[in-house]
């Protein structure tokens, strides 16, 4: 089964580290990605907010391109691309819509009836590679790292189009991160919107919504937020200085792409994962994790010492008792 790869435009710019870490992690796991030749933009929100057939045509061009190179499935890291590509394919079942899209494209509409399936890279990894195989390849477990998994609003919704994981409480990334040795904190806002692309035009919206997410991660004791979406990452990381922190208490909250943590756990060198391209210093998270591990070890040692002391005391008391009896 051939897997086509659709990087999405932001992979060439603001989400370079997602793109780099995705490729690095896939290579480490033996997942071969065939780039769609001369792929183009899916049109994202601006296209579907203007007209559905336009959005459908911009997406369909890429799916046709994937079919041309013999691929039956397209994987993409970006949920916005995923949503557009999947929606286009879903709506193509409607004859009227397909004809309308066909009129916008160079290709005839017949080609659009049977387009390749689309899935997120996350889905590819958890379903094709599988958690057991991933777990077996972990070289550097993310011990002590407490993470808040944030899926973004559209990777699983609407459920009848996306058909992956639970639309309200997805768990695939939780499971993946757990397999990597991280500790997943209960995070109630897994699918609550971060403000999407409104950062430029309505900063107040992103400030509030992303602030709520970061505040919840802070309150849950997370060392970092882990995301699967370039836009979410930008809002939470780059714009972290702009957000309204609930209660006014700002912290430095690193925001990783899940592929970066995956790559790290698999032993991929940091340089290939683009960790240095994150705005909030990722070292903060690893430092907190190391502290947590140290604290836990100290606690365990203290407990063991206490237990040993108690046992010794009991032994002493017992021998004293025996001595008395004797």
């Amino acid at each position: 089964m051939n897997l086509a790869y659709y990087p999405g435009c932001s992979g060439l710019g603001t989400s370079r580290e997602y793109e780099r870490s995705t490729r690095a992690a896939c290579t480490a796991l033996g997942v071969k990605l065939t780039d769609i030749p001369d792929w183009s933009c899916c049109g994202s929100t601006p296209a579907h907010a203007l007209e559905h057939a336009l959005s459908g045509a911009l997406s369909a061009r890429n799916l046709v391109g994937a079919a041309k190179v013999g691929c039956d499935t397209v994987a993409t890291p970006c949920p916005s691309c995923l949503s557009n590509l999947k929606t286009a394919r879903h709506r193509m079942a409607d004859d009227g819509f397909r004809a309308k899209v066909g009129r916008l494209l160079d290709q005839p509409a017949e080609k659009l009836a049977d387009l390749p399936d689309v899935q997120s890279v996350l889905e590819t990894l958890v379903t094709r590679v599988g958690l057991d195989a991933i777990r077996a390849k972990v070289r550097q477990p993310l011990a002590g790292l407490r993470v808040a998994p944030y899926y973004g609003c559209i990777m699983t919704r609407p459920a009848d189009v996306m058909r992956f994981d639970d639309p309200e409480n997805p768990t695939s990334m939780d499971d993946l991160l757990t397999a990597l040795g991280a500790e997943v904190v209960p995070f109630p806002y897994k699918v609550e919107c971060c403000g999407a692309s409104y950062g430029v035009t309505r900063r107040d919206i992103v400030a509030r919504l992303s602030g709520r997410l970061l505040g919840a991660a802070r309150d849950a004791g997370a060392h970092a937020v882990v995301v699967a979406c370039p836009l979410c990452q930008m809002n939470l990381d780059l714009r972290q200085t702009q957000v309204e922190w609930p209660g006014g208490r700002a912290v430095d909250m690193p925001v990783f792409y899940f592929t970066q943590l995956l790559g790290r756990a698999l032993g991929v060198p940091d340089a290939e994962l683009g960790l240095e391209q994150l705005c909030v210093d990722p070292a903060i998270a690893f430092r907190r994790a190391a502290q947590a591990v140290a604290a836990r070890q100290a606690e365990e040692a203290a407990l063991a010492a206490k237990a040993a002391a108690k046992a010794a005391q009991a032994k002493q008391a017992a021998s004293a008792n025996e001595g008395g009896r004797a």
Partner: peptide
Amino acid sequence: WLCLSCSSCTT
């Protein structure tokens, strides 16, 4: 124009 297309309503 401010709708974020997040699909909470739909879901």
